[in-house]
Design a protein around this nucleic acid. Structure first.
Length: 571
RNA sequence: UGCCCCUUAGCUCAACUGGCAGAGCGUCUGACUCUGGAUCAGAAGGUUCCUGGUUCGAUCCCAGGAGGGGCAACCA
């Protein structure tokens, strides 16, 4: 991974947008419900990289803290030694910072193990928890089903003294993994399945990335999460809809532990985005099975991947803003994300010319060996930025193969035999002759230029319908371009036939390498990490890994909005 | 003995405690007239799932129905 850290500029407080959560928080402030400033937290488990779905949550939690003068903690929910790693906590911290947010407190659930254990003892003493000797299988079957009640464990009515002794011996490491668990004593017939005596502590003689081997009774999510919120004085604990049912146990625990004005969980819809997957489990598979080059592969919807691809944090924040937050599952179109990315880049980045699929053009009436340096503005008239660069113009040029049609379709305004077209920032040229090789493939266009049309304006006022990009063949930079596209070929990658999984929906053309694109020479001096619009083709990012074999590499961040493709579709 | 959530423009989604239903994308039209595959402006587009009730007034509250989703990991 590159060491280049850009972004990270503090996120400006966005215009207050009123979603139902902000309404609740505003109400908390007005009524003094919690007797303290709004406090939120972002609670990732360090078992993978953050993705766009987390970005939504980050913008929400940190955004609320900013807007209401409250605080937002970063808390690692690291209660499962099997899957977690420091490498992930480092990546997470970096990503949150890059997005432009600063946390107030940095906490780890693993630092709360002792405190949670003390509460466990208290619950036992209060008769609200017991040690269960059933094995995993028995616990599962005895939980019942959604339509039938569970059956109580034979160990459910042990004495407090016996429970306490067993719990202490569990902690002391006297029992093997899986032999016993601590359970809350609630109701084995509860209509909400999570309330059927939920598990609190399980035995794991495992190495934890922060605790080493010093701990062996690991809390489960339900036990750790709400209480961790309470320890930190969180007011609103924001989580996604699938935790809705967990709210009952959350409330039961903070109440049983005796917290005054405890945090209140509020659920919102997780983000689903077309043509990609937003699940750490699935992203992990893509990485581990080598379908992508890593967590930061530019095709990945991870923060690291988007950064590598060239997306700016401003665009991600703007995206989070437009999608909003609601209580209903929301599948967002990829066009909405791409629009946010273009919208951000449009006003920011300079324009350059780069020919992706080169076709030689020879200007037969242009003097051999002559070079003119044209002044090409870096920004269009409606972008309030100034600057320009010199562009060499000569007898031999490259234009894009797609900008020529031997038999032009209707509404095709570009080059064709006998057609005149404008070269951006340059002259009007007319195609006089098409040169083909033995296989009949077009290899060269012989054109004439009109010397009176320098800068693209015809003195006689004649209309030229098309403008195309070009670059001088003698001065062109040979660059590698990587066309990054959507990772999956269909909007919902999980919508596959029985017996197949999301991997069968991968887009085989998600990364198209163009090893020999031709770029204008001004690009030679620009630093790695620069962003451009290559006019008419898209937004590009100078690959932070640098050059490959001495050649510069550009990732396509996003293509231009494509109304020609639409025209083609219409026929 | 099941519990909980959701249904609003073509599409994807918003809409504080009941008071003229909004945005993006898409579509159409126009402008810039050197990105015509960019950008900008404007327009069209609604029986708020259905039935009934409460109310001066219902997308919102109540009852019933239809459809979609979440929950039965010693994951989070």
């Amino acid at each position: 991974m590159s060491d280049l850290i850009e972004g990270g500029a503090p996120a400006p407080a966005p215009a207050p947008r009123r979603d139902f959560i902000r309404e609740l928080v505003a109400d908390d402030v007005a009524t003094g419900r919690f007797g303290r400033a709004p406090a939120t937290r972002f609670p990732p488990e360090p078992n993978g990289f953050l993705h766009l779905g987390h970005a939504k949550s980050i913008c929400l939690n940190f955004g609320i803290a900013q807007e209401f003068g409250g605080t937002c903690n970063l808390r690692f929910d690291d209660t499962n030694p099997a899957t977690e790693d420091v490498r992930y906590v480092e990546a997470i911290k970096r990503d949150v910072q890059w997005l432009g947010f600063r946390w107030d407190g940095e906490f780890y659930a693993s630092d709360y193990f002792e405190r949670l254990y003390a509460i466990a003892e208290q619950l036992v003493t209060d008769g609200k928890a017991y040690v269960d000797d059933q094995d995993e299988e028995a616990i599962r079957t005895n939980r019942g089903t959604v339509t039938s009640p569970g059956t109580p464990s034979p160990w459910r009515d042990r004495s407090v003294a016996e429970n306490l002794e067993l719990l202490r011996r569990m902690r002391a490491g006297e029992f093997p993994d899986g032999s016993r668990v601590l359970r809350a004593r609630i109701d084995m017939a509860h209509p909400n399945m999570v309330m059927r005596d939920p598990l609190l502590l399980r035995i794991r003689h495992a190495h934890h990335y922060r605790r080493g081997n010093d701990w062996c009774v690991y809390p489960l999510y339900d036990f750790a999460h709400g209480l961790s919120d309470a320890f930190e004085g969180i007011t609103r604990s924001l989580c996604t809809l699938e935790f809705k049912d967990a709210k009952d146990i959350y409330d039961w625990l903070v109440e049983a532990a005796g917290f005054e004005r405890p945090p209140v969980q509020v659920e919102f819809a997780r983000l689903e985005l077309d043509y990609t997957v937003l699940s750490k489990r699935k992203l992990l598979r893509l990485v581990e099975e080598g379908h992508v080059a890593g967590w930061d592969d530019p095709r990945m919807p991870t923060i690291a991947g988007l950064r590598r691809r060239g997306v700016r944090p401003e665009a991600i924040r703007a995206f989070a803003e437009v999608i909003g937050v609601a209580r209903k599952d929301a599948r967002v179109e990829i066009a909405t994300f791409e629009h946010a990315v273009r919208d951000d880049l449009n006003m920011e980045v300079p324009r350059r010319l780069c020919v992706l699929n080169p076709l030689k053009v020879v200007l037969t009436n242009y003097p051999e060996g002559e070079v003119e340096w044209l002044d090409a503005p870096s920004y269009p008239h409606d972008v309030p930025k100034t600057g320009s660069r010199p562009m060499p113009f000569a007898r031999e040029l490259w234009v894009d193969r797609d900008d020529f049609m031997e038999e032009p379709a209707k509404k095709f305004h570009r080059l064709a035999p006998g057609r005149e077209v404008r070269l951006r920032f340059g002259y009007l040229i007319t195609c006089q002759e098409v040169v083909k090789d033995a296989e009949g493939r077009v290899v060269e266009l012989r054109c004439t230029y009109d010397p009176a049309t320098k800068s693209g304006q015809a003195p006689d006022g004649r209309k030229v319908p098309g403008t195309i990009h070009w670059v001088s063949a003698a001065h062109a930079l040979d660059v590698e371009v990587r066309l990054v596209d959507r990772l999956f070929a269909q909007p919902d990658p999980d919508d596959v036939p029985e017996g197949q999984d999301f991997l069968s929906a991968l887009n085989p053309a998600s990364l198209v390498m163009i090893p020999h694109a031709k770029a204008e020479p001004s690009l030679a001096e620009d630093p790695v990490g620069s962003r451009y619009q290559f006019e008419r083709t898209g937004y590009f990012y100078a690959e932070p890994e640098g050059s490959v074999g001495g050649k510069r590499v550009y990732n396509r961040i996003v293509g231009m909005r494509d109304s020609w493709a639409k025209e083609v579709r219409k026929g």
